[in-house]
Amino acid sequence: MSRESLLLDIKDLNIFFKNKGHKKDTHAIRGLDLSLKEGEILGIVGESGCGKSLTNLCIMGLLPDQSYATWEQFNWRGNQYSEFKEKTWRGLRGSEIGMIFQNPMSSLNPTLSLEYQFEEIFKLHRKDLSKSQRKAEAISLLERVGITQAEKRLKSYPFELSGGMAQRVMIATVMATSPRLLIADEPTTALDVTIQNQVLDLIKDLSQENKMSVIFVTHDLAVVSHMADRINVMYAGEIVESASCSTLIQNPSHPYAHALLNSLPTEEAIIHKAQLKSIPGQVPSFNQRPEGCSFAPRCPYQKEDCKSSEFEQMVKHKKTRCLYPLNSLQSKAGALHE
């Protein structure tokens, strides 16, 4: 794969939270590598609180106050960035990178009607359109995300929308800018399955038609299995496994990835109302990570050297951050919970 075909190529990204007083900064994201080809859909799954949104905000240049990032390499369309220059990033954000936020209300202005919000976007990004074309385009975008009576809805204000409608309106406003990279952070959580599928198809179509790349964060493993080309699994601020979609779903090799897939309610559990399998124990907070593998305390396969100080060296060049990755036989047999 030649370097030029990569849209985004990040190496060794680290994100820290500053702490008050003399306490050491909290090391949240650790040594994260992430690359994305044009037109590729990358799925990200992982434990709640593991840093998925934080990573995306960093790519958008929107890290929260109190946090900062370092990296070895940050390459966007062949250009190296050695530091964030707010001005450069403001240019990219909106025109080349669009983000569907986990919180839909955060990117809709509560005091403006939808029509006005589309106007603002078109004025910046679609200078070619006349006023009546802009309205028609807004209506057509709303219809593509399944909003009925779109013309009437243009007069609405964000607080007048249901959860799922707000989410779709935000998706439509991002689509209006035709980004090269779409970061979608849980874009369909508030949608019923019929509308969810419509939105997923739209994202897929745009990715194929316009070679738009997508980072797709979700907890819905079924959704990601239909959307992604590749999947990164995150745990406690690190990518623990990165694999093609079908490999990850059928033969996960990291014990966390495997356990996650095993937590889905099975047909049998549904019918017999059996207890669901969740992963015992708790994810460590960023400032209380154990030495060695962060997942070891909850891992049924952990051995002594998983907790050793040499762990980092030993997994350094492995594809899966694990000393004892599961082979395909084990993961097929669902060995973890037997």
Partner: peptide, 20 residues
Amino acid sequence: DEPISALDVSIQAAILNLLI
């Protein structure tokens, strides 16, 4: 109202077990 939609499936399972 959509109490577990933002949770990973392992925590979803734990919360469902807890609710039951």
